[in-house]
Design a protein around this nucleic acid. Structure first.
Lengths: 135, 135
DNA sequence: GTGTTTGCAAAGTGTTTGCAATTTA
DNA sequence: TAAATTGCAAACACTTTGCAAACAC
């Protein structure tokens, strides 16, 4: 597990004050394996970990971390926001039945020929979602 | 413009009764060029066309048409549902600034190597969204 | 006539906001 | 102590639902 100071520094360099809540959430988010999450699941994790954080603060923090490039938002469902601690370029399987996300193994998909952005615009990202249903 | 009977038949074959509302919406949806829309925009179009339809019925109809394969739902924004009258396999540009969608020209992008679906599951679709921002 | 569909208003869901109290620096 | 942050509850935007009246067949 990374040292406490790592999270502290990470939060500071995002221009944010390392509050108890942000430190606890950063530890949950970045302290282990990469993960996919929603505000609800992170809030539940915090509670399970006996960390007192309001849902509003979870939302604020998720957005602040996303703006700082520490998280990536994944849009797969019209009614829930997902975030990914892995901000590198990769694609997702979305299991519609249970609302779970997982990464598509890097070598198993590839995009040829990236389209040009219209004049005066830039491509922010190319998001690929492979929707999975039961056979 | 397609004849009235076309829409009537299209709705019937979806197992739905061709009500005044469904006919009017089908005409708006399928009577011209392919289009991208939300419940709100379709509702506004109906009003502009002097068609009295409630927003609830617009939502119901969009889902019924989607289930019947007449529309395709496009997920690009965590807080709004988009639909596309073009149900064939193609990808989208999403302009974050104004919430507009447009098709990616077919030849300008291509997916190599489609990943395998996990055991016992099937790939329902592979959705590609190219997010566009101002330069 | 029977079963389907509509429209309304109410309820629901996930998310954001306003603001006083608290915390950080 | 000045500025940032938190938590609550209220507000929000979009969508769904319950149900009586209207409609299709």
């Amino acid at each position: 597990m990374r040292p406490y100071s790592h999270f502290l520094e990470q939060i500071r360099s995002a221009g944010l004050r390392p509050t108890r809540q942000r430190l606890a959430l950063a530890k949950l988010l970045f302290g282990g394996e990469d993960r996919h999450l929603t505000a609800e699941t992170l809030h539940a994790d915090a509670q399970a970990d006996k960390v007192r954080v309001s849902l509003a603060t979870v939302y604020n923090t998720l957005h602040q971390f996303t703006d700082a490039g520490m998280l990536r938002e994944i849009v797969v469902d019209a009614s829930r926001s997902y975030f990914d601690t892995n901000t590198s370029d990769h694609h997702h399987f979305y299991f519609e039945k249970d609302g779970m996300l997982s990464d598509v193994p890097e070598q198993s998909i590839s995009i040829d020929k990236v389209p040009d952005a219209p004049e005066g615009m830039i491509i922010k990202s190319i998001d690929v979602v492979v929707r999975i249903a039961e056979a």
